[in-house]
């Protein structure tokens, strides 16, 4: 069995996945509230029949979501909300409650506060937030209190999870939490701002170059292994 080739192959497959995650991060460099994703590799050990021999192969075992704060950009929109620090907004989708950091909200025809996909923003108690059409001034204070013409109408709740690995990504900058969520004790919401994607172009580029070079090393190894085996076959063939 040509084990060298298979070991190198596990690395090549992993690198292709890693490049996919780099590409996804860069594609989402302008997506409001996007969180950088990464792949974690782990070795798994194959025990060889030979005494004391083993070989380590690599496999994409896990992923991580970078919860670094993205840059806040001033937009001036009354329902553009950014979370500073920890916490996620809760929105109601047809599949159930989802968490998001993307705070570009608007009102729908019924006056409910919804995001750009039409999912309703939920308040602390899990109810929808309704803003009447005659509202002149909509204010959202830093603790999440929504006021209409000076009267508080609802409080936007921020939630978090104990373990970041309980958050699963879904399309539309949403996260699904299978575990329990907790209200953030001291939420900080900024009205008129949006949180940019937390992807850093420089580090993604560096990662991409690294992936590309590592892939080329892998190819080189496969190349040399191929030449070595060919050489063996040739040499042994001559002697026979």
């Amino acid at each position: 069995m040509d084990l060298t080739g298979y070991v190198a192959l596990t690395r090549q497959v992993g690198l292709a996945k890693e490049l996919q995650s780099v590409a996804n991060n860069i594609a989402n460099i302008s997506t409001t509230g996007y969180r950088r994703e990464g792949v974690v590799f782990a070795e798994f050990v194959e025990i060889l029949p030979a005494e004391g021999g083993s070989v380590a192969m690599t496999e994409a075992r896990g992923r991580y979501t970078d919860d670094l704060q993205g840059a806040l950009v001033q937009t001036g929109g009354t329902l553009d909300l950014a979370v500073e620090g920890e916490g996620y907004f809760t929105v109601m989708t047809p599949q159930g409650e989802r968490l998001t950091r993307a705070g570009a909200f608007t009102r729908n025809a019924d006056g409910e506060v919804v995001n750009m996909d039409g999912h309703r923003l939920l308040d602390e108690g899990g109810g929808t937030i309704v803003i009447p059409f005659e509202a002149r001034a909509i204010g959202v204070s830093s603790d999440g209190t929504v006021s209409v013409d000076g009267d508080p109408v609802a409080v936007v709740g921020l939630v978090t999870v104990e373990d970041q690995t309980e958050l699963f990504r879904e399309a539309g900058v949403l996260f699904r939490s299978d575990g329990q969520t907790f209200a953030v004790e001291f939420p900080k919401i900024m009205q008129g701002f949006l949180e940019n994607s937390n992807v850093s172009a420089v580090s993604e580029m560096a990662r991409m170059i690294q992936v590309q070079r590592a892939y080329e090393y892998g190819q080189k190894l496969l190349d040399q292994e191929d030449a070595r085996i060919r050489n063996v076959v040739k040499t042994l063939g001559q002697q026979a």
Binding site: K17, Q20, A27, T31, E37, R63, T165, F168, R169
Partner: peptide, 15 residues
């Protein structure tokens, strides 16, 4: 497995 592997497929215009 605590986290699994999820890989995104890019970006779309939402609005």
């Amino acid at each position: 497995l605590p986290a699994g592997v999820q890989l995104g497929l890019g970006v779309r215009a939402a609005a």
